[in-house]
Simulated scan of single mutants.
Amino acid sequence: MTLGGYLLKLVGSRILIALLVLVGILQILDLLDVTNDILDRDLGAAGVGYYAMLRLPRLIEQAAPLAVLAGALFAFGKLAGDSAVTAMRSTGISTYRITLMAVPAALVLALTQLAIGLQIAPRTDSMLSDWWQASTPKDKAESVDPVTFRVGDEIVVAVPRDPDGRSLEQVTIYRRDANGRLVQRTSAQAAVFENERWRLVEPRFESLGTASIAEGQARSMDWTENLRPSDVRMLAAGETTVTAAEARRALTGGLSVRPRTYYDTQLQRAWAAPLACLVMLLLAAPASLANFRGGGATLMVQCLAAGLLYLVFDGAFTALGQNGAAPPILAAWAAPAMFAALGVTVLLYLEG
């Protein structure tokens, strides 16, 4: 086996073990919260297994960066403890080359995380939502609170009582002009999804002029194509996860319940988040130079602290971008750029 193959196998196996442990812990914590609900719906052990399977992609996505950090620290720590790095450096192999040999392991997990975030998780989330809604006990007497959301420039208040998401009740639509001023209020008994678009039932109109109010009504009226039944089901369930596709659609006139900056940031984050795996590898790489006879454990702790600090900074920048306090592109990419630069700088310093 070549040196590159040995390093890749060592780092890859440690990352995989760390990923399995972290996902297992997250899965157990998640099931502790919902198992009673699943059993109360008479779904049994099969329901628990089905829920766990559908939740697995999101848990892998969440655990991936920490798995790279932990796995790389264990791998580089083993190399340092066995004096393997010292032997390699004596033959002219630099720490940079050692790190580059380990990059494919982190890159595979980063690409997996990207595929999960863009393609796999949105589908499993939708399947889980539909399954959960279908197994929810029906209680006609249960009151349903109105929800408020935006479709393009319109603000909508409605009651999503239909579990299939194909109808809305007590619909009120506030239409605004380009400057955000209210120009029309439309009230309808219901809105029904038919032929790939929504139709208002018995709508009443109140158009606001500069000095007057014009009223009108109709038996029915076509409304919008930008709202989907899945959007209504998501509103009724109170789901908070926003995929890249949903963020892109919200920015082009689809359903939105948050500020535009939130969706801009989520769209950028979909591509920036997988870089965390490569950043974590860079932050863990200095551990390969640890000298355990001279307090090398301190360097390991510092690498671990740097990785955890990266997660804190990344979360803080994301929150700033979602609330409009920072540009979305800065909020999504600042932490990966800063901590990647930090990892490279530390390697340059230690190698020099």
Rank of each mutant, 00 (worst) to 15 (best):
T2W: 06
T2Q: 08
L3M: 11
G4A: 14
G5D: 02
L8K: 04
R14M: 12
R14Y: 10
I15C: 05
I15V: 15
I17R: 07
L20V: 14
V21K: 05
L22E: 02
G24C: 02
L31H: 04
T35Y: 07
N36P: 01
L39I: 13
R41C: 10
R41L: 05
D42T: 06
D42F: 11
L43F: 12
G44H: 14
G47Q: 09
G47H: 07
A52V: 09
A52L: 10
A52R: 13
L56R: 03
R58C: 00
A64S: 15
V68D: 00
A75E: 04
G77A: 02
L79N: 02
S83D: 06
G92P: 02
R97C: 07
I98A: 08
I98L: 14
T99G: 05
M101A: 11
V108R: 10
L111A: 15
I116K: 05
L128I: 03
W131G: 03
A134H: 10
K138I: 12
D139K: 13
V147H: 09
T148P: 00
F149C: 11
D153I: 03
A158G: 07
P160V: 03
D162A: 15
V171W: 00
I173H: 03
Y174H: 12
A178P: 06
R181C: 08
A191N: 01
V192F: 07
V192R: 15
E196H: 14
L200R: 06
V201T: 12
A211K: 05
A214V: 10
A214Q: 13
S220P: 02
D222I: 06
E225P: 00
D231V: 09
M234Y: 04
M234P: 00
A236E: 03
G238R: 13
E239G: 14
T241W: 12
V242C: 10
A247H: 08
A247L: 12
R248S: 11
R249Q: 13
A250T: 01
A250F: 06
T252P: 01
T252S: 15
V257H: 07
P259F: 14
R260P: 03
R269C: 06
A273E: 03
P274H: 05
A276V: 07
L278H: 02
V279K: 00
V279L: 07
M280C: 04
A285W: 02
A287W: 00
R293Q: 11
G294R: 15
M300H: 01
Q302A: 15
A306R: 08
G307L: 10
L311E: 03
G315K: 12
T318K: 01
Q322Y: 02
W333P: 07
F339W: 10
A340I: 03
A340E: 02
A340D: 04
L342N: 02
Y349V: 11
